[in-house]
Amino acid sequence: MQLRPSNGHTPPTIDLQECLDGLYSYALVLSRNQAEAEDLVQETCLRALRAMEKLRPDSNVKSWLFTILRNIWLNQLRQRKTAPDMVELDTSEYVANRAVDSSRDPYAAYVSDLEGEQVRNAIEQLPFEFREVILLREYEVLSYEEIAEMLRCPVGTVMSRLARARSKLRDLLLATAVGGSGTKDESTGNCQRQSFCR
């Protein structure tokens, strides 16, 4: 699903289908509500389609799309003048989506889904700022500089926030089967478990 603006120069190609999982994930991290997330992604795509002719050839399309989505969400928050909804995620639709993929080995798929589910549960327990930086850096692989520009903060802030987010996430995962059954050594701050400290 690629589109290229028709404004004369050689602009970057936009493949919305390829970005859709990432945009939807970010929308869910921001809104924590499936219906709201879907609306955010759809609105983002519509605005991107309308604005793509203004896109510079050297633009980072992915970062641009994520910034659009974030701005829409922030505007909606301002308009509502309320705190973000804290509706818990219903993961059944995610599981249903994965279930249609019959090409994977069933056992490998089960283990992978279980592990993924535990990671998602742990991420959902993180504070908003940590969820956001984990998604942008670890899942969408945006650079520290791109994230800093999106969040309008110094690169150093992004790096320290990411370090704290990872530390908190690791603590949360210690309580699940993902990281094994070890404990954290409070004196050193290191985990004493097979998976994280093999």
């Binding site: 999982d21 939807y24 994930s25 639709e93 592990e115 990671v119 998602r120």
Partner: peptide, 9 residues
């Protein structure tokens, strides 16, 4: 390994 975090419906 757990990418994507969520799949678009």
């Amino acid at each position: 390994r757990s990418r994507p975090l969520y799949s678009a419906p």
